[in-house]
Design a binder for these strands. Structure first.
Length: 306
DNA sequence: AACCCCAGCAACCGCAAGCAT
DNA sequence: TATGCTTGCGGTTGCTGGGGT
C-alpha cells in the first residue's frame, strides 16, 4: 500500500533493498536478461533507478557470488598482485576472482588501505601507534607528524646524524606509509641502507629465500619476521616478501652493514635510558606496523649523493 | 548497561564511454 | 555531427554489528 502510494507519486526509493524488490528484479532479469535496467522503473515495477537495479543485480543477486565470504589468503594475494599490475581497475581485477565483484575488491582494498593508514598514523584520528608513541617516548622525542618525504636526508646537507634511509614506495599510495620511517626521530631511524633497484619484484616469480638476505644481514630478517609472528600478525604477504627477495637483483648500492642493530640510538637520544629501551626492542616500534608495508619498499629516485 | 571506536559492507554519486537516433 | 540515453566504473558515504572500555 505504501509502495503503491509512492509509486503513483514517482517517489524514488533509495537505501537498502527489500526482499520483495529483489524478487521483482530477479523476475525481470529472468524474463529479459540483465539489461534494460531503466525499463524496470518506466514499467512501474520498481521505484529504483536503472543504475540502482543494475548495481543490486551485479553485487548481490547475480548467481555464483561469494556473498558473505571473507577473502581467502589466496584471493588477498591475487588482489595485491593484480592491484600492483593494473592499479585501481577493480572491475578488471574482479574478473580474475570468480564470485567476487568489483565492489568486493574495492571494499577489500579500501579496508586494507585504511588499516595501513591508521597503523601508520596518516589518518586524522590518533592511531594506536601515535598513542603508544606518546606514552612510551619522552617528550623530546615525540614522533613528529607526517610531513613531506625526507628520503635520504643525509644528502640534504643536514648536520643530523640520521643515516641515509633509502626507502620510498613502489606505488604512490604507499608513499605515506613508508614515509613514516622518514619522519622518525634519529633515535628511531632504522639502519636500512640503500635497498636496491629491484628489491621487490611485483610478479612474485623469483624464489630467492631470506637465507641470502640473512647472510648479509642476519639481524634484519630475523628481527622483522619474529616481530610479526610473535605479535600474531603473521601475514602471508610477509612470507611472499621474503620468498621473493632476490638478492641477486639488488644493485651495488645495497649495503647491509654487518653487526649493526636494526635500531641504533644515535646522537643526543642515546643518553636516554627509556629511549634506549625502546630502541633496543624492535617490537616496541614494529609491532604496530602491518607486515605488508615491507612489500612496497623501493629505491629512492636517485642516489643520495646526486 | 551504556558508550565509543572501528571494520566491513551496501549503496549512492559523478563521470565517462558506448550506442542509437 | 550532435544529442540524449544507457551502462559501467571508481570514489565516497553511511549504516550496522562486534569488540573493547
Amino acid at each position: 500500500m505504501e509502495d503503491r502510494r509512492s509509486q503513483s507519486h514517482e517517489v524514488l526509493r533509495k537505501g537498502p533493498w527489500k526482499l520483495e524488490e529483489d524478487e521483482v528484479l530477479l523476475n525481470h532479469v529472468n524474463r529479459f536478461g540483465p539489461r534494460d535496467w531503466s525499463s524496470i522503473r518506466s514499467k512501474g515495477l520498481l521505484q529504483r533507478t536503472g543504475k540502482s537495479c543494475r548495481l543490486r543485480w551485479v553485487n548481490k543477486l547475480r548467481p555464483n557470488l561469494k556473498n558473505g565470504c571473507k577473502f581467502t589468503a589466496e584471493e588477498e594475494k591475487m588482489v595485491i598482485e593484480l592491484q600492483a599490475q593494473f592499479g585501481n581497475k577493480w572491475a578488471k581485477i574482479a574478473t580474475y576472482l570468480p564470485g567476487r565483484t568489483d565492489n568486493d575488491v574495492k571494499n577489500f582494498w579500501s579496508s586494507r588501505q585504511k588499516r595501513l593508514a591508521r597503523l601508520l598514523q596518516t589518518s586524522p584520528a590518533p592511531s594506536k601507534l601515535q598513542r603508544s608513541a606518546k606514552k612510551e617516548t619522552p617528550v623530546d622525542f615525540d614522533i613528529p607528524t607526517m610531513e613531506a618525504p625526507k628520503l635520504s636526508s643525509a644528502s640534504e646537507g643536514e648536520s643530523s646524524s640520521r643515516p641515509m634511509l633509502c626507502l620510498s614506495s613502489c606505488r604512490a599510495d604507499y608513499v605515506e606509509p613508508v614515509n613514516m620511517f622518514c619522519s622518525l626521530p634519529d633515535s628511531y631511524w632504522p639502519k636500512l641502507l640503500g635497498f636496491g633497484q629491484d628489491f621487490l619484484q611485483p610478479e612474485f616469480n623469483s624464489f630467492q629465500t631470506s637465507i641470502k638476505f640473512e647472510q648479509q644481514s642476519n639481524f634484519h630478517t630475523q628481527s622483522l619476521s619474529s616481530t610479526f609472528s610473535s605479535q600474531g600478525l603473521h601475514d602471508p604477504n610477509f612470507d611472499v616478501f621474503l620468498e621473493t627477495l632476490d638478492v641477486s637483483q639488488l644493485t651495488n648500492e645495497v649495503q647491509f652493514p654487518s653487526g649493526l642493530q636494526f635500531y641504533e640510538p644515535i646522537g643526543c637520544c642515546s643518553s636516554h635510558d627509556d629511549v634506549r629501551e625502546n630502541v633496543d626492542n624492535p617490537e616496541s616500534f614494529f609491532s604496530e606496523f602491518p607486515a605488508d608495508i615491507f612489500e612496497h619498499i623501493e629505491p629512492p629516485p636517485s642516489s643520495p649523493e646526486n
